[in-house]
């Protein structure tokens, strides 16, 4: 090796000695630059992701704190308004209460099995006969708008004979299964919209049935269905 180096002309030796550091520094620039920028780029994207999570969590926490009161009172009311299972018994109970309040005779009460729809909303039909004056019957019908579960009138056939009004009424009451999942901790959540708040106010004004207590079960860490049994 030394013999080889000794055989190199002096000019070339001088050139190598001067240019070699330049080349080494340039190579180091490339290596350090590439590695350094890659690491910085990686850490900057982690910072961006963490900032996004921080923003989402801050908003989420603010919303959850502000709706805590409303959610607690509203949750039970909405479950009365739209139960998770066939509400035929609650509906019939409410009809009996309405009948006694409006001094009409309620008879021949029948209910059908639940009818499922594609939108996850099911319904049960309850038919019955009301006997009383027209004003009492109309007042009873108006009362249906004030009870929970939410009940619609599908049809009414009213007839009058010798001063007595008899109405054959068919109502429809809705129910739906509970939601199966909740968003993950870092997923955003939105507050109630103004129209949802208006709707909630109306639902809070509905008269719940005398039986059928619902409580929202607390989540278990291993339970993917927080509302399940």
């Amino acid at each position: 090796m030394n013999k080889f180096f000794d055989s190199v002309p002096e000019n070339q030796k001088q050139i190598i000695k001067s240019v070699a550091p330049l080349v080494i520094v340039l190579i180091l620039f490339l290596i350090v630059g590439k590695f350094g920028f890659a690491q910085i780029s990686k850490i900057r994207s982690q910072i961006k992701s963490a900032e996004k999570s921080e923003s989402i969590l801050t908003d989420k926490l603010s919303i959850l704190r502000s709706v805590a009161q409303t959610s607690a009172t509203g949750a039970n009311s909405v479950l009365f308004a739209l139960p998770k299972s066939n509400p035929a018994l609650q509906t019939i109970s409410q009809l009996k209460v309405l009948a006694s309040q409006n001094l009409v005779v309620l008879s021949d009460v029948k209910s059908t099995a639940g009818i499922s729809s594609s939108s996850d909303l099911s319904s049960v039909n309850v038919s019955f006969v009301l006997t009383g004056t027209r004003e009492q019957i109309i007042s009873f019908i108006k009362g249906l708008d004030t009870i929970a579960p939410v009940t619609f009138v599908s049809k009414m056939d009213l007839s009058e004979l010798a001063g007595v009004n008899v109405a054959n009424v068919t109502t429809k009451t809705f129910y739906a299964p509970l939601p199966k999942t909740i968003p993950t901790v870092t997923q955003p959540i939105t507050d109630l919209t103004p129209s949802e708040k208006d709707q909630l106010v109306k639902i809070l004004g509905l008269t719940p049935p005398v039986f059928g207590e619902y409580t929202v079960t607390t989540i278990s860490e291993v339970n993917p269905n927080p509302f399940g049994q």
């Binding site: 959850l64 959610s71 607690a72 909405v78 909303l121 939601p179 109630l192 709707q199 929202v216 509302f227």
Partner: peptide, 17 residues
């Protein structure tokens, strides 16, 4: 967590109603 569950339930029920 409880508030979140209740809020999800509220929104779900209100949408279905």
């Amino acid at each position: 967590e409880t508030s979140e569950q209740q809020l999800i339930l509220l929104k779900d029920r209100l949408a279905k109603i």
